[in-house]
Structure formats: C-alpha cells, structure tokens
C-alpha cells in the first residue's frame, strides 16, 4: 500500500462495505412508524386548519347578517325562527349573551389564535399519545 492513490481507492472500497446489523427490520419499522406519525400529524393539523377556517367562515356569515335575515323571515311569517332541530335562535342568542359567550363580541384575531392554539395543542397531544401507543 505504498501508492497513495491505490490506498485511497482501497479505503473507499472499505468504506463502501456496509457493516452487518441484525436489527435492520426493526430499524425499518421504526422509520416507518415515524413516517406514519408525521403523516398523522399533518392530517390532524390540516383537518384542524379546515375546522378553524370553517368556524370563521360560519362566524363571518353570521356577522354579515344571517341573524338579521332570520329575524326578517320570522317577522314576515309571524313565526319564531326555529331550526329543523327545534332550536329557538333568539333564545339561544339571549342565553349566550347572558353567559358572556356572544361570539360577535370577541375580536376576530384573538379568537383565531385561541382556536388555532387549541387545535394545534389537541393535534400534538394526539400525536404524542399515538407515538406512545406505537
């Protein structure tokens, strides 16, 4: 091995020879579990984002005058507006206001972050739980 170039080639061949591991299958399973967890996390976060987005869409729609529209319809038909489930909207609104839960009173951005943090927290908790279970 006096020739440096020949020795470089020899070293590269030695490095190319992978050592033997008897737990390759277990290692591959661990990688697959982590990939599964990563996929699960993304799904939960995307679903959460969809829920948050949907929630805000509904809220904005309500703010845009759906409540007023319902009242107008009720006035026109001389009936109390009720949902198909028999829910009295005016009573629900009064109840929420009395409990300090009037959504329209909560500023949009703080509410957005509040719900986002809750959804992300739930996603992380689920992921940790799933990981411990796996």
């Amino acid at each position: 091995m006096s020739d440096p170039d020949a020795f470089d080639g020899e070293i590269e061949r030695m490095f190319a020879r992978a050592p033997a591991f008897d737990d390759t299958e277990a290692f591959a399973d661990r990688v697959d579990r982590r990939l599964g967890l990563s996929w699960y996390l993304r799904t939960v976060v995307l679903t959460g984002a969809g829920v948050v987005g949907g929630f805000f869409a509904v809220r904005e729609t309500l703010d845009a005058g759906l409540g007023t529209g319902l009242s107008q319809i009720a006035a026109m038909t001389s009936q109390t507006p009720q949902s198909s489930a028999g829910l009295d909207w005016s009573q629900l609104g009064a109840l929420m206001s009395s409990r300090g839960l009037d959504l329209a009173m909560i500023p949009a951005m703080p509410l957005f972050w509040l719900v986002s943090v809750a959804v992300i927290g739930a996603a992380v908790a689920s992921a940790v739980h799933a990981n411990q279970g796996g």
């Binding site: 050592p19 033997a20 591991f21 390759t24 299958e25 591959a28 990688v31």
Partner: peptide
C-alpha cells in the same frame, strides 16, 4: 430503508 440502512448507520 431495509436495503441501505446498514450503509447509513
């Protein structure tokens, strides 16, 4: 992963 894990590890 099964094929190349040993090389990387």
């Amino acid at each position: 992963v099964r094929r190349h894990a040993a090389s990387v590890r």
